[in-house]
């Protein structure tokens, strides 16, 4: 039993499942940081290559996904470093409007009515959480849900592609949605 536990705690790499399991997760992670679809795609690809190349350095202490995300993080940083070195020195500009005494101070105070500051961060976390849950779904449900919800494909197209009938599709969608509701943390559903 002790040995069994040891095996379970040590994670193993399984590169053949990487694309299906983690591509969307990593893609979302990248896209929220670089804001460019093509670039995000490239970064994900580079991450997988780097992962394959350094697979022997994987110690198994972290999960596969955490490890891949760590590589992707480096890739994103490298990208910004590269693009920064091409630029000249950073410029800091501040505009002072001298139309009234102290008016510039007011400009710098955060608007207390604005709730949108954290929206970006929250949406990113939400996206990652949803993708994590999608990757736990049975593959057919995950496929149908992604096609319908994320790609916004028409019912007819999906049915043709997967050769299923519409009522089949809706049952799959329903199952996927109810598992997602169970998987997503209750916090997300709090109003």
């Amino acid at each position: 039993m002790n040995q069994e536990e040891k095996i379970r705690t040590l994670h193993q790499l399984n590169p053949t499942t990487w694309v299906d399991q983690y591509a969307d997760y990593l893609y979302n992670y990248a896209i929220s940081r670089v804001n460019d679809e093509e670039l995000a795609k490239d970064l994900v690809q580079e991450t997988f290559f780097a992962g394959l190349n350094s697979a022997k350095n994987f110690k198994g202490t972290a999960s596969e996904r955490t490890w891949l995300v760590a590589i992707l993080k480096r890739k994103v940083i490298d990208h910004y470093r590269k693009s920064n070195s091409k630029k000249g020195k950073a410029e800091i500009r501040m505009s002072y409007n001298n139309d009234g005494e102290g008016s510039w101070l007011e400009e710098q105070i955060a608007d207390p009515l604005s709730k949108s500051e954290n929206d970006g961060i929250e949406n990113e976390e939400l996206g990652m959480a949803i993708h994590e849950c999608i990757s736990k779904l049975p593959s057919k449900q995950a496929k149908v849900f992604t096609m319908k919800t994320i790609h916004g494909m028409s019912t007819e197209d999906i049915c043709n592609e997967l050769s299923i009938n519409p009522s089949n599709l809706w049952v799959l969608v329903f199952r996927a949605r109810s598992s997602l509701m169970g998987c997503l943390n209750e916090n997300w559903f709090a109003v």
Binding site: Y27, K41, I130, T149, I150, L184, F189
Partner: peptide
């Protein structure tokens, strides 16, 4: 279920999900 389902739709829209 129905309320939660609607909320899920809202969440999915909010997250502006992307996938390959």
């Amino acid at each position: 279920f129905s309320r939660k389902n609607t909320k899920l739709t809202g969440l999915c829209n909010e997250a502006s999900l992307q996938a390959l």
